[in-house]
Design a protein around this nucleic acid. Sequence first.
RNA 1: GCCUCGGUAGCUCAGCUGGUAGAGCAGCUGACUCUUAAUCAGCGGGUCCAAGGUUCGAAUCCUUGCCGAGGCACCA
Length: 505
Amino acid sequence: MAARRAKLDRLRTELGVEPFGHRVDGITPLDRARAAFDEAAHLAYEEAAKAAKADPSVTIDDRRPAVTVAGRVVQHRDMGKLVFMWLRDHSGDLQVSVSKANVPEGAFKVASMADYGDLLSVTGRVGRTNRGETCVWADGVTMQCKSLEPPPGKWHGLSDDETRYRRRYVDMYANPDTVRTFQLRSRIVSAIRRFMESRGYQEVETPMMQAMAGGAAARPFVTHHNTLDMQLFMRIAPELYLKRLLVGGLPKVFEINRNFRNEGVDRSHNPEFTAMEAYEAFGDYMTMLEMVESLVHAVACEVAGVPQGGPVALPFGDLVIDYAKPFRRVRYEELFQKAFGFAMEDEARVRATAKDLHVEGAATKDLWLVVNELFEERAEALLDPSKPTFVLDYPSAISPLTRPSRARPVIAERWDLFIAGMEIGPAYTELNDPDIQLAKFTEQLKGADEEESTFRSLDEDFITALRVGMPPAGGMGMGIDRLVMLLSNSQSIRDVILFPLMRAE
RNA sequence: GCCUCGGUAGCUCAGCUGGUAGAGCAGCUGACUCUUAAUCAGCGGGUCCAAGGUUCGAAUCCUUGCCGAGGCACCA
């Protein structure tokens, strides 16, 4: 805005002030400055100031805490010879009061010329106004950065989603809740890491650019390496590399990192998203169940600020989610039976029902694909969204990386965790028989359509790794963004990703 | 990719069956040493998302496109 440019020039030419500052040491966050208020010192100062007014020879012993604070101006009220401003930083808001009598003339001009959005540093004493507002009574005011862009409204703020996502930096200063959400996200990810490390898992990093995009069934993003003249895919999952580490001898590994899937965008999908995967040698899917249940519970307790192990519930939209252990468990086939009134292996009734529900390929597609469509259509809806629930024992046919049950090979040792209707993540007893794995991959490739076959290929090195020998293992995956959504009561994944993907402007 | 809704001042929004664009806040000038969305006096501010069409006349109606939101599809 032209007016801001003009003020910038006035600061430089009239006041000799450089509007883009430099290093400031010893800044007190605004919440701490507020907390530093000392009632006794404040009252003593008020008394002394009154006395000094009557008798100028009296010197004031000012014991109010001295602070340096810094922040963005979010309110500015100019009373002529007294200027009140609200500063905002990552910790909160605090009023700064600037009396013309108590600061150098240039500093007072800076204060009275300040605009919404400017960054100031202020030195002064923590006190209170006549109206009871805790504030910093300034003895110095310095312009640290003149904001040259028009700010969002001070009253209605910024609510346009497009601007919030495209200009997150404005969203963050205009909407303190946004900052709180991302502070919470950092705490959650940190708590997850601490939990995993406390259980002896080692964090690793595996390739994000892969010659073959394996470990899941999503469409990948394609890229190219120039000097090697080589097509690469952004990874859709780290699974096949983490398993190689089990082959190599690491017993317990995890990775928290981005996956990239070239699919649609909606409230719970962003093309790049953060996932954790973990693998434990000589474990199985029930090892993972205990671990994930404890992890989600522990993080929920931390977010809610309640003791570990006890009852804990957090709001999510209209729901209150109960994160107390144990989570519910239900077997896939039992849920199917409950939803449809017949067994999932009753092919005739499965296909007939699928036809009634207009499932594509009801008569011709593989039975288990039809079963799973019915399951997703009707059975998942039976889960109580406010109770985290493990759905156990998926059909083997739709679980290509999972070890079939010894007792009943048609069932795979796999579960999925559902919370609030969202799939948070699966876990498997990992398939470590190279011959069966090869057969499953080959089978899967046969079923690939033309588009799929352009990016799907057989990862022979992974089969080689299995032939070298991977210990029996449990493995899990978890969508970190979705977990953060749940724990921060955010209804859209865009509200927990700092810079969600947007179309180019 | 499909369907629905939306895009008007810096922000939040109003603008009826078509008649030439408004409010509040923000901004600018001035006053004010205790404000809390400060107050008071005065002043400026628009590619009505874009292009095309219908019409004497379009922010408004039609078509197409762009961007966003929600839903559907896709996402083992």
